[in-house]
Amino acid sequence: MSVLVYVENTEGKFKKTVYELISYAKSIADLYGSQLTALSIGHVADDELKSLGRYGVSKILRVDSEQFKSFVNQAYASVIASAAKHTNANTVVISNSFSGKGLAPRVAAKLGAGLADGAIDLPTIDGNTLSIRKTAFSGKAYAITELTSAIKVIALTPNSYDVKENPTDSSIEDFAPENEEHDFDTIIKEIVRASDKITLPDAEIVVSAGRGLKGPENWGIIEDLAEVLGAATACSKPVSDAGWRPHSEHVGQTGIVISPNLYVAIGISGAIQHLAGVSSSKTIVVINKDPEAPFFKVADYGIVGDAFEVVPKITQAIKAYKG
């Protein structure tokens, strides 16, 4: 019996969300009193792999051959299922990232495992039953899911578990997975990455703006504030529908659901669909010139004022504070 965690690398490096994921998987292994094995697919340098030991990984399975250079959903799912069998894992932990959302259901189906995706905290374990909380109704509620299968797959929402150091001696072992005939039918044609940009699901701070900004040409003040805060930028649905900002920035019930430490909403009135996507943010700041904006009812801090005057002042104040 053991816990297997799949650690996704980004161009050979592990991001903070991976360390969160391992810390989480280690806590589950502790609940079972078992060992934690990490599975890395693709090329990652030894030193980077060894960094996983700091968070409680005992063994690292490495799959690093040419055919696994880039992510192919079916092929990677086969590798994870194969590693789960190899390590006799009863729980497989995967990030609920863009790629993880594609992997987890395939891995679960291969293993005949119950899947809890979008998990937001540690499970409770009672015999063979594992109960876990996930967000449902796009953040308007939580659902407690029970997994009753012999093997369980959990997909953890990024930014929902704190990194915990847990220095452990870890060893690296090369693993030869079993793959299926059609695993490599999908061809990756191109990968485009804007390396300097903080991405929404990873972001600890998000600065978001709505129709109150009046037009795409006014986004400079939003980007300036995001820059001094080290934040990602986001927007409301009307803004992406109008083409002022890309759909990938739309947070809300039918966009991305996020849970950053700090969410700053500027010129967003706070329709129920928008609130659903951001309500699990730890701290919410609302800036709106309408004191009756519904967003103020669910915010921690509020400023009633004109965004075009207030936002540059906040940017200045943060610059001054950060020296």
């Binding site: 679960a108 005949g112 495992a113 119950g114 899947l115 809890a116 109960s131 909380r133 449902a136 953040g139 308007k140 509620a141 939580y142 659902a143 407690i144 899911t145 029970e146 997994l147 009753t148 299968s149 309500s279 699990s280 919410i284 700041v285 609302v286 103020f296 009812k297 669910v298 915010a299 921690d300 801090y301 509020g302 400023i303 009633v304 004022g305 004109d306 005057e309 207030v310 002042k313 906040i314 200045q316 104040a317 943060i318 001054a320 504070y321």
Partner: peptide, 30 residues
């Protein structure tokens, strides 16, 4: 065969009261 099922729901706890900061004092928000 059933592998996973929802047993119950919870609704998020309401947030505490909002603290307003005057628009002329952004350093207070910081």
């Amino acid at each position: 065969e059933e592998l996973a099922h929802i047993v119950r729901y919870e609704t998020p706890a309401p947030r505490g009261a909002i603290t307003f900061v005057d628009a002329s004092e952004p350093e207070k928000l910081v």
